[in-house]
Design a protein around this nucleic acid. Structure first.
Lengths: 159, 159
DNA sequence: ATTCGTGCAAAATCTTTGCATTCGA
DNA sequence: TCGAATGCAAAGATTTTGCACGAAT
């Protein structure tokens, strides 16, 4: 590969073409190494998993980055406000975050004993969220359904 | 009314007959003035409202009680673990609590801008929660549906 | 008479923020 | 260049906890 297609090489060297980076720039935000890496971590995360701020920070350190916890928090907030991440609350005292991909299931069943979570999808629920929002004249951004209970394992233990 | 029906008067003086107090005692817990008052505050709360620990503490002080914030937290945790209160998370950094009354609506639409909440009921959703839990062999305790978006007022402001 | 609950203050968690410096556009 | 982003440490906010005392059973 020689010095052909300048645009592409140029683009990739400076900043990879990525719709997320574009929307960051469009909003006056900057594409930093920290933000790129954080986004990458969420993209590499198996679907159905989610990270707390601490966990994200741990993952960053694991990859050799020295991003501060403060930046992890700031970036989580930014990406959430941009609608790229979904903020999850499992009544544990800290929040979790996952990549928002509307086409994938993202509803949760949470075990109140062992805190394990299980992801499921139900098309009717998604629809219902939209319909109910419309009924009250809300501009719906996200709908989250949480089912709390005892998981199969913990059911056994509690008898 | 004279001194007839002794049992009733007696019972009310010592400790009112209340299924909640019974279940407290049954579990080895005690019925204290603080717990009675906290329960009363939740029962007096208009349906659809919910309190944070701080707010509950404020309401207690308003009624002349000197219950500590620590006890407010401890009691909220106890009543929640007994299934009497429902713990709500509106992504505000602190939890809210409401009396759990399965026959009444308790799903929420939350405005991400002004944090106002609106309560709604959808029978279909309640059923769905049970069904989905059963599908995964969970012992369902509670199902919470949250719709996040912009309320009618904030929609106007944001254009 | 026990044992549990409470108040208080301290501690533990989780999250945000001020400021000097570094870095992206 | 110039403002935005970062790291650091300090501050805030929320929740939990150890301990001595008081109260419920």
């Amino acid at each position: 590969m020689h010095s052909h297609n300048h645009e592409k090489e140029q683009q990739q060297a400076d900043s990879p073409a990525d719709p997320v980076f574009d929307s960051l720039r469009k909003r006056g935000h900057r594409v930093t190494a920290q933000r790129e890496l954080i986004l990458q971590i969420f993209r590499d995360l198996p679907h159905g998993q989610h990270l707390s701020a601490e966990e994200l920070h741990g993952a960053l350190v694991e990859r050799g980055s020295s991003v501060s916890l403060a930046t992890a928090y700031r970036t989580l907030k930014l990406l959430t406000s941009m609608g790229l991440l979904r903020e999850l609350d499992f009544a544990e005292g800290h929040k979790h975050y996952e990549l928002k991909q509307d086409d994938l299931p993202h509803q949760h069943i949470i075990c109140t004993r062992c805190n394990s979570t299980l992801e499921f999808e139900d098309h009717f629920l998604e629809e219902a969220g939209q319909k109910i929002g419309a009924r009250y004249n809300f501009d719906v951004v996200d709908a989250q359904f949480k089912i709390f209970g005892l998981c199969p394992d913990c059911r056994k233990l509690s008898r």
